[in-house]
Design a protein around this nucleic acid. Sequence first.
DNA 1: ACCGCAATGTAGCACTTGCTACAAGCCCCC
DNA 2: GGGGGCTTGTAGCAAGTGCTACATTGCGGT
Lengths: 180, 180
Amino acid sequence: MASSETVRQKLLPLMATHILENGMGSASLRPLAKAAGTSDRMLIYHFGNKQQLITDVLAYIADSYSAQLETFFGSDRVASREQAIARVRAFTNSGEMRPFLALWWEIVAGAARDVPGYRENAQAIMVSLLSWFEGQMPEGDPDPAGGARTLLTLIEGAEMFNAIGLPDIPNRGIEAGRPF
Amino acid sequence: MASSETVRQKLLPLMATHILENGMGSASLRPLAKAAGTSDRMLIYHFGNKQQLITDVLAYIADSYSAQLETFFGSDRVASREQAIARVRAFTNSGEMRPFLALWWEIVAGAARDVPGYRENAQAIMVSLLSWFEGQMPEGDPDPAGGARTLLTLIEGAEMFNAIGLPDIPNRGIEAGRPF
DNA sequence: ACCGCAATGTAGCACTTGCTACAAGCCCCC
DNA sequence: GGGGGCTTGTAGCAAGTGCTACATTGCGGT
């Protein structure tokens, strides 16, 4: 029933690509099977059922996302919090991240509605992003943990405004300076 | 084809309730018709097609949301930006807003994927929220417009973390103080 | 009383959904 | 070479999708 691990490892990236490009809306068995060069029959055979399939693909995507985080930057430190935030926003706004961001909001929506597996996936992604971001905080920062939390909150809010086509709202706000 | 406006006005709140409770995932014609006490046949008759139907219901929900904004608070001013942010978060975290927030992330996801109508809807909601929030800024604030933008960005980021079950991240971050 | 039209019910179509029953192919071990 | 199990193809099912054709009802105007 479980089939071989190596087969699944071959299918996952193909399905991941398809989901990233077309969204969860077309993440049904037959389209996914077509993208992976197999049949719905075989997907069920390899993954058991659709929920497990989706969980596995999302986990795979989360992993490659955090891998991309590591390689996108070197480990060179940054001089200020402003520079840290600029760096992350440059990363998330680099065109290649676009498909992932579109998927990200679908994951958030699923988590908010308690779709099984989505919350865990969303948390894993954010925890990984946060811990990486803490390491990116400037040297000698008085409170790297707290700073990373606040900045990441700000960044995610900004990404939401980006997603809905109102990028000027966070931009002008962030330019306007200290919120408190 | 267009049918009478009054009939539509009777159907909209019933369908809005159903969507708020069950999400866009079950916003298909037959469930909506059942919730509105009519038939899929009649919904198409009254609204033309499904896309128009959804657009109208979402617009209706956006309207009742901003109406709720007005009534939730009096027009009394607030003493500080911290107090302003606390006020909005009290509003969004009041249990009755929960269904709307769950729907909100589905709208954001749709906007990010260019589902027709979603972006316009999301923008309308955020523009209305922002302009209301500007009016909520403390008296004598040096930059109410910029402040409202930054704070709203922070709030939306915090709501995202709430939605995925990590409320401590923005809380601890915001407590930690000034991001810059 | 009758006509015309808006409003509604009943069936249905073509399609997609997740999943399964059944059978056939395949390759390894004896 | 023959048995046995892993893998795969073919068909199909029951449910749900948006939408439509057709017929019927009901009501207002003449």
